[in-house]
Amino acid sequence: MATREKRLAQFDGNGEPSPEQRVEVLCEDHSGTYQLPFACRFVDGQWRNDTTGGALEANVIAWRKPREKQPGLA
């Protein structure tokens, strides 16, 4: 299992992304850290699901620009 520090090191976003920027987010709760399986945006001081526009009910601790998918990998 990846440690919190290793996961944080993979998320290199600094400050807040612009509202137009789709990003991947790392969240944390009492069980540990996890990446959400969908893109998000930071709009008006709030993290939102990029597809639905719904506000996240998760504690976002880091973000990064989406990584390109490698052919043949899910």
Rank of each mutant, 00 (worst) to 15 (best):
P66C: 02
F38P: 01
W47I: 15
G45S: 15
K69F: 15
R67I: 12
K65W: 04
L26C: 07
I61E: 15
T33P: 04
Y34V: 02
D29F: 01
G32S: 07
N59Y: 05
L26W: 10
F38I: 08
L26H: 03
V60H: 06
E20Q: 12
K65P: 06
P19G: 12
E57A: 14
L73Y: 08
E28A: 10
E24I: 00
R67V: 11
A58Q: 03
F11Y: 13
A58K: 02
S31Q: 14
K69C: 03
R7S: 14
A39Q: 12
L36G: 06
G53V: 03
V60I: 07
A2C: 13
I61C: 09
Q21T: 08
L36Q: 07
T3R: 03
Q21E: 07
A58L: 00
P19I: 03
E16Y: 14
Q10D: 05
A2I: 09
E16R: 13
E28N: 03
A62C: 01
N14Y: 06
L8H: 07
E28V: 15
C27M: 10
F42G: 01
R4N: 07
A2P: 14
T52W: 03
G72Y: 01
Q46H: 01
N14P: 07
A9E: 05
S31K: 08
E68H: 15
P71Q: 14
G54W: 09
Q70H: 05
G15D: 10
P17G: 14
T3C: 00
V23A: 13
P19M: 12
K69P: 13
L26I: 01
C40L: 10
D29H: 01
Q35T: 10
V25H: 00
G15V: 08
A55V: 15
S31V: 05
T51C: 03
R48H: 09
K6Y: 11
I61D: 06
S31H: 12
P19H: 07
Q10H: 02
L8C: 05
F11D: 00
